[in-house]
Design a protein around this nucleic acid. Structure first.
Length: 343
DNA sequence: AGGCATGATTGGAC
DNA sequence: GTCCAATCATGCCT
């Protein structure tokens, strides 16, 4: 007997029960033993429709009678088996879907930003890096840093409280549906496997809602981060001493104003700025000097004299011979290099 | 407010 | 990767 035939037989049997024989096992036996013709499917549908016209008490009584019927367990298991084969087997395999790559991306990002996972000052590395790149004073960067962390903590808090709400709602709803299905399983064929499947469906639905929450949280973090990183554009002029150190190096190496990596590191250390800021400064300085040597002449002379005096002092300390001629020699050399290099 | 100074960024060449 | 050149964006001075 194929599934379809068995199902029809099952329905026919129930149809017979629904019509008149519920509560009267003998009648069923009589029908079966006498081999009465199967009722038309139209009759069965009519009977089902007629149930809606019944009063609640009548329906309850019928339900009770049905539950007590001796054929019920057998019919129930047949229907479960048919459902298992026709419906669950079709969907079963495909529903084992792999983890969504988008959710994985969102999870990774939230973890990296310190929104999900253990709280350990997430994003502070980014904040520190941005603060360093901004080249602001330690006070400024620490203010911005703490502001960033406070806002991130706020996002984190909202995210976790919403997540908790979703999880609670999901668990409540799952329990509710499970209870409902268990209750219904007394009157219609619902196998435990089907209940499990329903739970999985609910979890998937809630997980898609969770994804929206994760997406919004990621967006909020990105906005916060971009705002924070935009602070880089809030240019701060280097302090006077730093500019002086850089200019001294520039004008004393005018013949080749390209500091080595080591020299850049040394200058960065002296000036309290980053190596890339030193590189930027020299890049800007070279191009601006080259474009308008005349404008920088006075500055160049000033630093040349300063360098010369410093060198002379060092020399004097060494040889006790501090002659003005030394200054003149250094200055001459400077002017010579200056014009040779850039003219 | 406007103009200049200056640090940062970007795109192309090497 | 560095460097140059152009450009942007902001700071600062008048």
């Amino acid at each position: 007997m194929d599934d379809q035939t068995r199902m029809m037989t099952g329905l026919t049997g129930l149809g017979g029960l629904a019509q008149a024989d519920v509560g009267d096992p003998d009648s069923v036996r009589k029908q079966q033993s006498l081999g009465q013709p199967q009722q038309d499917i139209g009759d069965i549908l009519q009977q089902i429709m007629a149930i809606t016209d019944e009063s609640l008490d009548e329906a309850q009584a019928r339900k009770h009678a049905l539950n007590c019927h001796r054929m019920k367990p057998a019919l129930f298991s047949v229907l479960c088996e048919i459902k298992e084969k026709t419906v669950l087997s079709i969907r079963g395999v495909q529903e084992e879907d792999p983890p969504d790559p988008q959710i994985m991306r969102l999870d990774n990002m939230l973890l990296a930003e310190g929104v999900s996972g253990p709280e350990k000052g997430g994003g502070s590395a980014a904040a520190a890096a941005a603060a360093a790149a901004a080249g602001g004073s330690p006070t400024d960067s620490s203010i911005e840093h703490s502001d960033y962390r406070a806002k991130l903590a706020q996002i984190r808090q909202i995210y976790h409280s919403e997540l908790e709400k979703y999880e609670q709602a999901c668990s409540e709803f799952t329990n509710h549906v499970m209870n409902l299905l268990r209750e219904q399983s007394r009157t219609r064929p619902i196998s435990p496997k089907e209940i499990e499947r329903m739970v999985a469906i609910i979890h998937r639905k809630f997980s898609s809602i969770q994804m929206q929450l994760k997406q919004s949280t990621c967006e909020a973090v990105m906005i916060l981060r971009s705002r924070f990183l935009d602070a880089r554009r809030k240019r701060r002029n280097f302090n006077k001493q730093a500019t002086e150190v850089l200019n001294e190096y520039f004008y004393s190496h005018l013949s080749n104003p390209y500091p080595s990596e080591e020299a850049k590191e040394e200058l960065a250390k002296k000036c309290g700025i980053t190596v890339s800021q030193v590189s930027n400064w020299f890049g800007n300085k070279r191009i601006r000097y080259k474009k308008n040597i005349g404008k920088f002449q006075e500055e160049a002379n000033l630093y040349a004299v300063k360098t010369a005096v410093d060198a002379a002092n060092v020399s004097a300390q060494a040889s006790q011979a501090n002659s003005p001629a030394t200054c003149c020699t250094f200055y001459s050399c400077f002017v010579f290099f200056n014009y040779m290099f850039y003219m």
